[in-house]
């Protein structure tokens, strides 16, 4: 179990892996995630199920290389196995009943998390506009996949090197102002992006779902590390989320709480990079 059956590099810091995990593949729905451990020494790391193939019994993970664990994961090859993998965890994304037109917004690697949602909605016959934002042309991912699974795809880059110049919020605002009626917006990406999308959609009264990525350990509701404040109440993202109502989330709190191990992680990153330069 948990054997890597295919691997591809989407951009210099984003990798896609397909992994044999029949129990997970049988049950997975968009919005859910897995927690895995590379080996005995590894951390428990959460990643969204970006795609699944019930017949082959495989799931796809798309991850950004940001620190020790994702660097180690990126070094595994086809045929290698993960020691542990648990999932699907969390609640599947709940689209409001009767929604006819939905805007799915992805920021950077958040596009990987937003992709299964877009795909499912599109296949359910809902009009899906995708707005995908990236810093620049070199890191654009999943363009083909989104194009095949959406009614309209809008790519934005911060520097204008590809698609439209500007932020996803500019594009969203333009669409809304031009008279497009969205029943729901799904925004997944960096915390500031989700915060500003939610702020904008609140003005227009459009229901907005965001997917939160607090630090997790067990993923079963046992540690409380993933607690987030939504509508003034403590919620455990691993069991009650990771999707929440964007208009209710305390994004600033999530932002500082995610920095809890920042100093130690920076150390790990330096060590891991040094290791990789030495070819370890």
């Amino acid at each position: 179990m948990f054997r890597i059956v295919s691997k591809s590099v989407l951009n210099p810091s984003v990798v896609r892996m397909e992994i044999k995990a029949p129990f997970t593949a049988a049950k997975a729905l968009p919005g859910q995630f897995v927690i895995f451990r590379i080996d005995e020494q590894g951390e428990r790391v959460p990643l969204t199920i970006a795609d699944y193939d019930r017949e082959k019994g495989t799931i796809t993970l798309i991850f950004q290389i940001v620190g020790a664990s994702t660097i180690r994961l990126s070094k595994l090859e086809v045929g290698d196995r993960l020691q542990d993998l648990a999932g699907p965890l969390g609640m599947p994304t709940q689209i409001p009943e009767g929604a006819k037109r939905v805007c799915v917004i992805g920021g950077g690697v958040g596009c990987a998390i937003a992709y299964p949602q877009a795909k499912k909605l599109f296949h359910d016959g809902i009009e899906v506009d995708v707005i995908a934002g990236f810093r620049n042309k070199d890191i654009v991912i999943l363009e083909e996949e989104f194009r095949a699974n959406s009614s309209n795809l809008f790519i934005c880059t911060d520097d204008g090197s590809y698609g439209r110049k500007g932020f996803v919020t500019d594009m969203l605002k333009e669409r809304i102002e031009s008279g497009v009626q969205y029943d729901c917006v799904i925004a997944i990406g960096p915390i500031p992006m989700m915060k500003f999308v939610s702020k904008l959609t609140k003005e227009y009264g459009i229901k907005t779902i965001v997917s939160l990525n607090p630090v997790m350990v067990d993923g079963t509701g046992m540690c409380g590390g993933c607690r987030v404040t939504v509508g003034g109440k403590i919620r455990y993202a691993c069991v009650e989320g990771p999707d929440f109502d964007g208009h209710e989330v305390d994004f600033d709190e999530l932002m500082y709480r995610n920095g809890v191990f920042r100093e130690r992680e920076a150390d790990c990153r330096m060590i891991a990079q040094a290791d990789s330069k030495e070819g370890k």
Binding site: G224, G225, G259
Partner: peptide
């Protein structure tokens, strides 16, 4: 296994965690 918190101000600060965590 579900940890209880106290529900007081400041429990979300960095450096505050459950014993389970």
């Amino acid at each position: 296994g579900l940890p209880r918190f106290m529900g007081i101000e400041g429990e979300s600060l960095v450096g505050v965690c459950s014993a389970n965590e």
